[in-house]
Amino acid sequence: MINAEGLRKVYRLKNREVVALDAVDLNVRQGEVYGVVGQSGAGKSTLLRCVNLLERPDAGRVVVDGADLTALSRPRLRAARHGIGMVHQHFALLSSRTVAANIAFPLEIAGVGAAQRRRRVAELLELVGLTDKAKAYPAQLSGGQKQRVGIARALAPNPKVLLSDEATSALDPQTTASILGLLRDLNRELGLTVLLITHEMDVIKQICDSAAIMENGSFTESGQVLELLETPGSLLARSLFPLPASSPPDTVTLTYTRQSDEPLMSQITREFDVDVNIIGGAVEEVAGHSVGRLNVRVTGPRRQAALDHLAGHGLIVEEVR
């Protein structure tokens, strides 16, 4: 749905250059929620702004829903943008307009008639649960309500793609959860493709099908979350499941992305005569699957054979250090 190749963006300041994007390839499949995480200054916002060409990349192509945006004329680009909704960290609502008029704004831009606008706005208010706030002004709303208006506005012209830059980072945890839930529902019910930026691993864990980790303008890891978790040495896995910093010798990290019916631990103690000691770990719901990650100390002469046995049964086994 979103295909970007070789994106490069350099900001030229007075005395130096900042390479904000460096050869970034982005592939967001139709109907998925794709999350980009990274430190402040990694280039996440720049990437998102390149997807709807608010920022024109210095090199590379951006194809959204089959159209190469980088090659479009100004009027055609404007038309293409009706199909790409955007949600902003600081909401970016018009303070001079009521909630209803804010949601109607993209429809006015797209030239939708007044009667149809009114109908669509009523639908969207219902969808985000703000029907009773239709006539309120943004200044009278809470942060979570403002972001619901922002989402309703982004959805008004029936976009296929929703871009979200830190949509929840100005909100408290509870409100964050409800906004993420709303995005997830929209993704499931409307088949909306969502590309979101966040600096919270929790957001990736809760709603993303795919993810990328960004550092200094490029992706260090990207792909489906479950596959990344199964990749040895994955930074994402390590960030999603922070494990004890120091471990005794002979400790391994075990990751499993599906439940196993076999009692693997007791099998290895019996068959390979090793001692197993659980140091720490967690089981969490990730991308709709229950995923576990354990730090386990395995000792004994036939340790390697025991670990091979676990790996043979679909567990990811990584030596700690």
């Binding site: 608010l54 404007r78 943008r81 955007m86 902003h88 600081h90 831009i109």
Partner: peptide, 17 residues
């Protein structure tokens, strides 16, 4: 707010609009 102007550009608004 610059963000509002940018949001409008992202919605495909003309500059005169």
């Amino acid at each position: 707010d610059r963000g509002v102007v940018e949001a409008s550009l992202a919605m495909g608004a003309r500059r005169l609009t």
